[in-house]
Amino acid sequence: MTTMATTISVNGTSVTRQVEPRTNLVDFLRGELGLTGTHVGCEHGVCGACTVLMDGATVRGCLILAVQASGRDVLTIEGLSEPGHRITKALQEAFVLRNALQCGFCTPGILVTATELLTQDPAPSRELIREAISGHYCRCTGYHAIVDAVQQAADVLAATQGPA
């Protein structure tokens, strides 16, 4: 099968690879770059486990081909775990303390979406949090603890940042 030279900025570093056009973004991240923090749950765009940020907005890594991400900025959970991502860091801390994860397979995708949510709305209601993460299936927690943790992270961020 023919391949295409594809250049993507992944977690701030430009990478160029020859990829088959049929390779989706999540397989590219995992297989080519070894970024296994992004998970494959359904490969048909429902479960949300493969969610990453592309140019700052959440996308499903299984619904985008790697070649479509050419020239874009992709941030994965590995990149968001590096210093400087204070919203993700607060979320991660809250998820651990609140036990808002069990098996953890859905967690990176949910953290990506929650990062996007708190970037746009620093003080979301429980209802809004529930709606925002409804594109993610979690089979372990029942979601209640996740909602708590996102709220806790928002509170911590508000307290550490002071009035906007």
Binding site: R30, T36, G37, E78, N99, F105, T107
Partner: peptide, 19 residues
């Protein structure tokens, strides 16, 4: 007590079989 193994999971450093 929080789970000692939760921290790597929230950073995407889990080791599921496919990883």
């Amino acid at each position: 007590v929080p789970r000692p193994n939760a921290r790597r999971l929230v950073q995407g450093r889990g080791h599921y079989t496919d990883d």
